[in-house]
C-alpha cells in the first residue's frame, strides 16, 4: 500500500493537465476528512461536503469563472458512501483526475464506486469492527472501568486515521482504483476472513456478556440419608450448568434471532418483547 505508484498519464485532449502542489491536495484531503458529512441531508446526502472539499482543487485547475462554476455544479449532485473506508479512496482518485481535467471520468467514477465501497465499508464497520470493539469496551465499562469508553474513543480515532492512507491510495491509483475494486477478489477474501474471526469472537461474547442471566429457581426434594429423611435444596441453575452452561443466554439470543428473522419483527418490536419477557420472568421469579 505504501510503495510509490506512478501516476498514470491519461489522455487530456489537449486541455493541459495541472500539476497540483502538495498543500492544495492536503487542504482538500483535510476538508474531506473533517467535514464530509456536516451538511448531510436526505436530498443529496454527502454532495455538499464533497463539493466543499473539492473547492481548493477546482480553483487551482480551472482558470475561468465559468469553468469553475461548471465544476462546482458537477460536484453538487447526489453522492453517498461509507465516509471512513469508502469515500477517501474515491475522493483521492477524483482529486487526481480533476487535476488532469477529466471531469466526465470524475463523475462516472464517483457513481461507479460509491455503491460498492459503501457495501464494503459498511460491512466491515457495522458487523465486524464496531461490534467487536463495542463488546470489549462495554464489558470493561460494566466492570466499572473508564477503560471502556476510552477504548471506544481510541478505536473511533484509529478508524478516522485510516482515511489518510486510503486517500493517498486513491490519489496515486486514479482511474486504476475502479478496476481494482471491480476485480474484487482481495476484498472478498478480506471480508471472509474478518467474518470468520468475528463469529468466533461473538460465540465467546454471548456467554461472557450475558453470564449474569441466571435463574434463581430452586426446588426442595426429600432424600433419605442414612435412614433419615431430610430436605435438600437443589438449585436449577447448577443443574443447567452441568448439562449446557449458559443455556439461558443462548436461548434468549436464539429467541431474539428468531423474532427478527423468522417472524420478521423490527428491532423495536423485538425490544418490546424482551421487555415483556424480562418483566414477566422476573415477576414470577424465573429470572
Amino acid at each position: 500500500m505504501s510503495e510509490p505508484v506512478e501516476n498514470r498519464p491519461v489522455e487530456t485532449g489537449g486541455q493541459g493537465p495541472v500539476e497540483l502542489d502538495r498543500a492544495t491536495v492536503g487542504n482538500a484531503m483535510w476538508r474531506h476528512l473533517i467535514t464530509l458529512q456536516w451538511s448531510w441531508n436526505y436530498e443529496r446526502m454527502q454532495a455538499l461536503g464533497y463539493c466543499y472539499s473539492m473547492l481548493p482543487v477546482i480553483n487551482k485547475v480551472y482558470r475561468s469563472r465559468d469553468e469553475r462554476i461548471a465544476a462546482i455544479k458537477r460536484h453538487l449532485v447526489f453522492y453517498n458512501t461509507n465516509p471512513q473506508v469508502g469515500s477517501p479512496p474515491i475522493f483521492g482518485a477524483t482529486v487526481a483526475l480533476e487535476a488532469q481535467k477529466q471531469g466526465q471520468v470524475v463523475d462516472s467514477l464517483k457513481v461507479a464506486l460509491m455503491g460498492p465501497l459503501a457495501g464494503i465499508g459498511d460491512t466491515i464497520q457495522a458487523i465486524l469492527y464496531r461490534p467487536i470493539i463495542a463488546v470489549f469496551a462495554a464489558s470493561m465499562a460494566l466492570a466499572g472501568s473508564m477503560g471502556g469508553p476510552l477504548l471506544m474513543f481510541l478505536s473511533g480515532l484509529l478508524w478516522t486515521a485510516l482515511m489518510i492512507p486510503l486517500f493517498w491510495l486513491g490519489y496515486r491509483e486514479g482511474v486504476g482504483l475502479a478496476s481494482q475494486v471491480a476485480e474484487g477478489g482481495l476484498v472478498t477474501r478480506i471480508t471472509d476472513l474478518a467474518t470468520m474471526m468475528g463469529m468466533v469472537v461473538i460465540g465467546g461474547f454471548v456467554p461472557s456478556i450475558m453470564a449474569k442471566v441466571q435463574t434463581p429457581l430452586e426446588f426442595a426434594r426429600r432424600v433419605t440419608v442414612q435412614g433419615k429423611v431430610t430436605e435438600q435444596v437443589v438449585k436449577i441453575q447448577s443443574v443447567l450448568d452441568q448439562i449446557v452452561p449458559y443455556l439461558i443466554p443462548v436461548l434468549l439470543v436464539a429467541f431474539a434471532y428468531w423474532l427478527l428473522r423468522g417472524l420478521k419483527l423490527s428491532p423495536v418490536w423485538v425490544m418490546v418483547v424482551l421487555f415483556v419477557v424480562g418483566f414477566g420472568l422476573s415477576a414470577i421469579g424465573v429470572l
Binding site: P249, A256, Y257, R261, M271, G278, A283
Partner: peptide, 21 residues
C-alpha cells in the same frame, strides 16, 4: 424487572448482529 431486562437486552444486539452474518 428493569434489572432483569437490562441483563437480557444484549440478546437483541447479538441477534441483530447475527442476522447480518
Amino acid at each position: 424487572g428493569m434489572t432483569t431486562t437490562g441483563r437480557i437486552l444484549p440478546a437483541l444486539g447479538f441477534a441483530l448482529l447475527l442476522s447480518q452474518l
